[in-house]
């Protein structure tokens, strides 16, 4: 019965709803209550919830297992999967397994390099890249075959997501890369956190001009800042992150105790601006270690209640 169900995220996007997704990281251990607690905070607040896959190369509960814990309490997971740790054999096998358990969305990533993580002495895999992974998942869905062309006994029919970073270099190439990801198989795109609206606007305009926004659902990412320190850290230390000086100044300009409020305010203003842009189909909220703020942001943005599709 479950296997016949299709992605709720897909249904909403296809129906033209402005969707809300968020992100949560599994615990560094086997305590499922941790992930369930996080999930409960987001029930009825988001349409789907990304579950990270050993993000920043820190070893955590697997994204498949954590996704299932969320599914069991009625949340729709977007299982993130990186090519850093698994070769094509393991990736395909895990995707089939995840689908058999009821997972319907996947976000295909290459993953942060392990030298940033908790076990930099690990060997990486990188057998295929995120582009190849997106193509693989789509091919399994469309042709019913695995990468070797073997006919599958029930193919996983995942709704395929990929990431895009409009702020990385070289800028001219960023839209070509987006097109490539769509061609490869991405049905939806979640972007790096948007602070630099100028640059994002330019990117989405180029994407629009290439007709890409009609071919893929774009969900820009936002991350509420907690402090000026965090703004600085993100700008200087997190690869591919662009926090404009004006935003850093604004965070630094308020008393420490009000900084989090200011961060939420900036986040809400960003969401409001993004919603005005043509070609945006939703928002992806990545409140790093701050899941409890998400409900307030979604409410503050006027995005509650979430649409009810009935039982999916």
């Amino acid at each position: 019965m479950k296997n016949a169900s299709i992605s709720r995220l897909e249904k909403l996007l296809t129906a033209g709803e402005f969707v809300v997704t968020a992100e949560c990281g599994p615990p560094r251990g086997s305590n499922r209550e941790r992930i369930i607690e996080k999930g409960k905070l987001l029930q009825d607040v988001v349409d789907a919830l990304n579950v990270t896959d050993n993000q920043t190369a820190i070893v955590r509960m697997s994204s498949i297992a954590a996704s299932i814990h969320l599914l069991n309490i009625g949340l729709e997971p977007v299982m993130q999967m990186v090519t850093r740790d698994r070769n094509r054999i393991a990736l395909q096998s895990d995707i089939m397994g995840a689908y058999s358990l009821g997972i319907r969305n996947i976000l295909c990533l290459t993953g942060d390099h392990q030298s940033f993580g908790s076990q930099p002495d690990a060997m990486n895999v990188f057998d295929i890249d995120s582009m190849n992974l997106a193509r693989t998942v789509r091919e399994m869905r469309e042709t019913g075959q695995d990468m070797s062309g073997h006919e599958l006994d029930e193919a996983p029919k995942m709704f395929v997501g990929a990431a895009a970073n409009p702020f990385a270099d070289p800028f001219e190439y960023r839209v070509i890369r987006l097109a490539k990801k769509i061609d490869a198989g991405a049905d939806f795109i979640q972007t790096q956190c948007v602070y630099n609206l100028e640059r994002f606007r330019e990117w989405i305009k180029l994407a629009r001009e290439e007709g890409l926004t009609d071919r893929v659902h774009i969900l820009p990412g936002v991350t509420p800042l907690k402090s000026a320190g965090m703004a600085n850290y993100m700008n200087n230390r997190v690869a591919g992150m662009d926090v404009p000086e004006a935003v850093i100044q604004r965070m630094a300009g308020v008393p420490k105790k009000d900084a989090a409020n200011e961060g939420v305010k900036i986040c809400l203003e960003t969401i409001a601006e993004l919603r005005e842009m043509e070609g945006i189909h939703g928002i992806h909220i990545m409140a790093i270690k701050w899941e409890e703020i998400v409900a307030g942001i979604v409410e503050g943005a006027g995005l509650l209640p979430r649409p009810d599709l009935g039982v999916s």
Binding site: H113, F116, D129, N132, A168, P170, Y173, K180, A184, G240
Partner: peptide
Amino acid sequence: CAKKLLNGPCGGSQAGKCEVNPDTDCAWQ
């Protein structure tokens, strides 16, 4: 490329440098 990307660059390429090591040129750049 630190991630062996055949369809790069990754999202961490900035100012021509690799996200893994700022002393290394990004291969994809």
